[in-house]
């Protein structure tokens, strides 16, 4: 299953490392990554693939949200269909 992970918050050291390590530990593959600073906010969008992971969506989601809290950023993980259905005919 593909999902979209977005991270929004104040820039600081170790955000990408922190999030990536959670993904790596759960065997989640990063397919694409896009990071930018928008209006002074750190904004990162990752496309991830969970097929090889032994954990389910909900567990991975909870771990990432928890990590986000530790890093002081907001982490949102959703299945990619939501964006496709909204923005593509």
């Amino acid at each position: 299953m593909k999902a979209v992970l977005t991270v929004i918050g104040n820039d600081s050291v170790g955000i990408i490392a922190g999030i990536s390590s959670v993904l790596a530990n759960d065997n989640v593959n990063i397919i694409d990554i896009n990071q930018t600073i928008m209006s002074g906010m750190f904004t990162m969008v990752m496309i991830i693939e969970m097929n090889e992971s032994e954990s389910d969506f909900s567990t991975i989601n909870d771990k990432l949200v928890k990590k986000g809290k530790e890093l002081g950023v907001q982490v949102i993980v959703t299945r990619e269909e939501i964006y496709k259905s909204m923005h593509r005919i």
Binding site: I8, N34, M38, T43, V45, I76, Y83, M86, H87
Partner: peptide, 15 residues
């Protein structure tokens, strides 16, 4: 491919 701006627009709508 979905654009970053589209993803962020959807998130803004919800949040």
């Amino acid at each position: 491919m979905i654009k970053t701006s589209e993803i962020l627009a959807t998130i803004k709508m919800i949040q």
